[in-house]
Nucleic acid binder design. Structure first.
Length: 555
RNA sequence: GGGCGUGUGGCCUAGUCAGGAUAGGGCGUCAGCCUCCUAAGCUGAAUGUCGGGGGUUCAAAUCCCUCCACGCCCGCCA
């Protein structure tokens, strides 16, 4: 409805003014939509913008009322549009239906890659920014009607994994015992890195391992595979704890084994930009890159970039759109990858880059063992959430309190991460990550639970849309924008907009809740308010689920 | 040194791409609100050179130039 109204009003304005540059802006306190087109017209025609706005208002009034269910009002140089009661009723009718906000199915399949952390230690709070941006986007794309597959690209043959494989042997460690696999790997990895630092000559053993694994030596492949398997099983457990699942894990080594990487390297070597000496590299200076893009080492082994190119070619040929979520440290290599695929005429991925999460004492590092693991974060969050639930709802049994606390802690973590724009680097703070008040996931869950509670007490009621008060109208208008938010999140790949929307929805509902009695209202007013509570509850639930957060009925 | 990103009240943050009406929120501070549908809540108050300086425009947090600060990158690592 909201999207529809914008399209219709814009078309009418274009027709009446004969201009192509009419845009509608948010009307703020003044209106639902506004057009400042009279400013430009006044400037060009040397007439008063206010007079022009008045004329436009008269010209479009009837059509806008008829087609977009809005009244047109001139306010100085602005042409303002205010939705009428038919619009409000229509929003309520739509918003009480299951699946509100879902957009019609679209053609084409998307592959979205996120997380893809190296299996050399547990996921930490930096990795899960990637995870949560990726998973939230995936949920939004699906809600927006796209078919989508989520993939995890497993780096199972890089230098880090060689170091892990080497470390296990050196340290005579059995990583299958003594704790969660990903944490055990980190212990080995940190120790192995120290050993290599102390005795750099040992690096030759790492090089040798990498040559053997690329050649497909079965014993070496097995030595790499086991720790990767252990680590991934730990990852899957952590991800599940955040409500995140991947449809497919794709192994980097597959692109060596199936020959794709070799075929790609051969193809690349024929490009005019290729330099073939003892190594293979590409001159991407025409794309603005200073240094050559190196793809094959002098010992003949491929570098990560080559395997990643093979992976992306495969994705591009099997899907209609390729999206990657990558950390800011991948900006250079990611844009080099895009440039190379463009050179080859292959499908170019859209890459969403996010900036780093650091600790107050400095940046995180798996190699140095300096990080806060996602598991520690989740466990601390669950403890704090359980304290809160116990404090507020002492009458509930333990199992129920734990279930609520689990939902609440995931909500707090996911919301804290997704609410900030990806372009901004952040400093991790326990207090902010585990905040359960305002601008938090639990705050939105609470609004939903509150709506559930009212509906539970109300019993049966008749759908009604007699709306009058300011807080009711503001709430309905916001509910009406939900589908357009889903649209915008996917168009602009900005999942934080959904977080913002959900919080504003909770704000408006809370204001309404405190301003207007629902259960104690009479007849049509009661029914209308209950309908509004139902519409709000449904929209909050859809928004929460799309954020990967449980819409709990009680908390 | 070069490239990319960020800079908004004491602290955190939206708005910047597609310039428009008094720059939205939150934390913290202050003053109120639970005989009333869940106070993880609501209402009100105070707090701003939108990093600095130029420019474009009827209009700049938003566009252009320049400088400063912070983050990331500039490996035959991934």
């Amino acid at each position: 409805m909201y999207i529809d109204a914008i399209v219709k009003i814009t078309a009418i304005l274009k027709e009446v003014t004969g201009r192509d540059d009419v845009i509608l802006i948010d009307g703020g306190d003044h209106a639902d939509l506004a057009s400042p087109v009279a400013f430009a017209m006044g400037k060009e025609e040397k007439r008063s913008p206010a007079l022009i706005a008045k004329q436009i208002t008269e010209q479009v009034y009837d059509r806008v009322l008829e087609e977009a269910w809005a009244t047109t009002v001139a306010a100085g140089p602005y042409v303002n549009f205010i939705f009428d009661s038919r619009y409000l009723s229509a929003v309520l009718d739509a918003a009480v239906r299951e699946g509100y906000g879902s957009l019609p199915p679209r053609k084409g399949r998307i592959v979205l890659e996120h997380t893809s952390a190296n299996p050399n230690g547990p996921l930490h709070v930096g990795h899960i920014r990637n995870t949560i941006i990726g998973d939230t986007l995936a949920r939004c794309f699906r809600k927006a009607g796209y078919q989508l597959e989520v993939q995890y690209y497993v780096n199972d043959m890089g230098r880090q994994i060689a170091i892990v494989a080497w470390g296990i042997e050196e340290q005579k460690e059995d990583i299958t015992t003594g704790g969660k696999g990903d944490h055990r790997i980190a212990e080995v990895y940190v120790t192995a890195n120290k050993a290599l630092l102390a005795d750099p000559e040992k690096n030759a053993e790492i090089d040798s391992l990498m040559q053997r694994v690329e050649a497909g030596d079965p014993a070496t492949v097995a030595r790499f595979r086991e720790p990767v398997k252990q680590c991934l099983s730990g990852f899957k457990e952590t991800l599940a704890g955040l409500h995140v699942t991947h449809d497919r894990f794709v192994y980097e080594s597959d692109f060596i084994r199936n020959g794709d990487t070799q075929r790609l390297l051969a193809r690349l070597s024929w490009l005019p930009q290729a330099t073939r000496t003892d190594i293979l590299s590409l001159d991407l200076s025409s794309f603005g890159f200073e240094k050559d893009y190196i793809l094959q080492r002098s010992d003949g082994t491929s570098v990560y970039a080559a395997r990643d190119l093979a992976y992306h070619m495969w994705k591009g040929r099997n899907f209609d759109r390729v999206i990657d979520v990558l950390g800011a440290d991948h900006k250079l290599i990611g844009t080099q990858l895009q440039a190379t695929l463009r050179l080859l005429g292959e499908r170019v991925p859209d890459i969403i880059f996010f900036e780093f999460v650091s600790l107050p004492e400095g940046s995180m590092s798996t190699r140095r063992g300096k990080f806060i693991s996602a598991d520690d974060l989740l466990s601390e969050a669950r403890d704090r959430a359980l304290d809160e639930v116990t404090k507020r709802r002492p009458e509930l049994d333990e199992a129920t309190r734990i279930a609520i606390a689990t939902s609440v802690c995931i909500a707090a973590i996911r919301y804290d991460i997704i609410k900030t724009i990806p372009e901004k680097s952040t400093v991790f703070s326990w207090d902010e990550a585990l905040d359960f008040e305002k601008q938090s996931g639990p705050y939105i869950q609470y609004a939903h639970a509150r709506a559930c509670s009212i509906l539970d007490k109300a019993g049966e009621f008749t759908h009604a849309t007699e709306i009058g008060t300011d807080s009711e109208i503001a709430l309905i208008k916001h509910i009406g924008r939900f589908p357009s938010v889903i649209e915008q999140v996917t168009e602009e790949q900005k999942p934080h907009l959904l977080a913002l929307y959900a919080r504003e929805l909770a704000d408006l509902f809370n204001s309404f809740y405190h301003a207007e009695p629902v259960l104690k209202a009479r007849e049509i007013t009661r029914n209308s308010r209950l309908t509004l509570v139902q519409a709000t509850r449904n929209t909050l639930q859809e928004a929460l689920v799309t954020l990967g957060i449980d819409a709990v009925r009680s908390m």
